[in-house]
Amino acid sequence: MKSIQFPYSVALRLKPMPPVFYLLLVLMLAAPGPVRSQEEVITSYRHFREREYSTGYYEDYEVRPLKQAPVAIPGVRIGTFPYSPSAAEVRIRTRLADSHRGIKFYELQQCKDCHPRNALNNHTVRANITCRQCHGGEPIASINHYFSPMNPIRRHAYICSKCHQGANVSFASYVIHEPFPADVGTLEEFPVLFAAFWFMVAIAVGTFLVFLPHTALWGVRELLTKKKGGAGGS
């Protein structure tokens, strides 16, 4: 009888994994977590209490203004209102429950009378979305008020997803009131946009600068030449 040798294949032979495996492992660690479209994103608490059960007091995931918004525009000054491209150095009203508290003749005017630049956004001028469909009824909360639906931590859920099903926090970092990219001010408010704009314009202008004169000269030159080649088109 063949004697069984001990330990019988107990020695676990760990085959070395292919390097790709470790690469994948590292990549997995670097990958972003899943985005939950309807959650507030301030802490890693995933399952905070449903709103219906809220006492009005939330845990630390709720409503405290962040140092930085969940998805920040690179190059934009870190501050309390990173999402406000229109320079907000002196904005003091940006954390009020009623952003228009105490403003005279507010009731008598339209939004665009006082906020003309804000009326120039694609949602308004093209898709006929009214200001209030996003900013809500009275009182209009300031953007960064703790409980404002516009607060970047919950804007995606309370505003955008009304129309854009499944909107996530990254989607909500789209700048609705986009500054005009050619303006110098945009360099501070949205540097990436400014750079991309002028880069593309440089390419376009460069192309036309070379080829428009070239084409025009060519046309003139051929007018002055006796035509060679087949009659009527080639």
């Binding site: 998805v71 996530n168 991309a196 390419i203």
Partner: peptide, 26 residues
Amino acid sequence: PVQSSRYIPGWFLNVAFWIHRIEAIL
């Protein structure tokens, strides 16, 4: 836009819009 902003930040939609527009004009 909603799907793509899972992989890229949403503010890139602003940038993409202008790149798309200028390149199309060109």
